Amino acid sequence: MKKLFFFLTFFVFASVNAQRLFNVSEQNQPDVKLFVVDDPNQADLNVHEVRSADKAKNNDGIWFFTKNIDQAEKKVCFVKEENQADLKIHFVSNQNEAGWINESKKSLLN
């Protein structure tokens, strides 16, 4: 029974996609470099930020920024120039508007 519990626990945590993020200040530290665009049509991903980590479990644009790097699944850095970014994002106020526009970039947060 212990083995089954361990396996199921591992499977659940291994299947969680990276939506708990930590914002690093140095550009050489992040897993993904982000650029915020004003126009949602220019974004790869529409992002809605939530205040609770349990609401940000899938790779669907619902993000939670942790205060502790050890709790994050990905380290991100916001860059000032679009050509420095791996991913262009647009923040949305409604959770239903969050989601991928450019599916080819989705693997950056897996």
Rank of each mutant, 00 (worst) to 15 (best):
R20E: 05
R20A: 01
R20G: 00
R20S: 13
L21A: 03
L21S: 07
L21P: 00
F22Q: 02
F22S: 00
F22C: 05
F22G: 00
N23Q: 10
N23Y: 06
N23T: 12
V24E: 04
V24R: 05
V24L: 04
V24G: 08
V24C: 02
V24M: 04
S25W: 07
S25Y: 06
S25C: 01
S25R: 14
E26R: 11
E26S: 10
E26I: 03
Q27V: 09
Q27D: 07
Q27I: 15
Q27G: 04
Q27T: 12
N28S: 14
N28Q: 05
N28D: 01
N28R: 15
Q29C: 07
Q29A: 10
Q29F: 06
Q29G: 03
P30Q: 06
P30K: 09
P30T: 10
P30F: 15
P30W: 09
P30Y: 08
P30D: 06
P30C: 10
D31V: 13
D31E: 15
D31M: 07
D31H: 11
V32G: 06
V32P: 07
V32C: 01
V32T: 08
V32M: 00
K33L: 15
K33T: 14
K33R: 14
L34K: 06
L34Q: 10
L34D: 03
L34N: 04
L34C: 07
F35C: 10
F35Y: 15
F35D: 04
V36M: 11
V36N: 05
V36P: 04
V36E: 13
V37T: 14
V37K: 06
D38Y: 03
D38A: 02
D38V: 03
D39T: 06
D39M: 04
P40E: 01
P40H: 03
P40C: 00
N41Q: 10
N41W: 08
N41R: 04
N41E: 12
Q42V: 06
Q42Y: 04
Q42M: 10
Q42C: 02
A43P: 01
A43K: 00
A43C: 04
A43R: 03
A43W: 00
D44F: 01
D44K: 06
L45E: 02
L45H: 02
L45Q: 01
N46K: 04
N46G: 11
N46E: 05
N46R: 09
V47T: 07
V47M: 09
V47D: 04
H48S: 05
H48R: 01
E49C: 06
E49Q: 13
E49R: 09
E49G: 05
V50R: 12
V50H: 07
V50Q: 14
R51D: 15
R51M: 12
R51N: 15
R51W: 11
R51V: 11
R51T: 10
R51Y: 08
R51I: 12
S52G: 02
S52V: 14
S52I: 13
S52E: 15
A53T: 07
A53Q: 12
A53C: 02
A53W: 03
D54A: 09
K55D: 13
K55P: 08
K55C: 09
K55I: 03
A56T: 14
A56K: 02
A56Q: 07
K57R: 11
K57N: 14
N58F: 08
N58S: 13
N58H: 10
N58V: 13
N58K: 15
N59V: 05
N59R: 14
N59G: 10
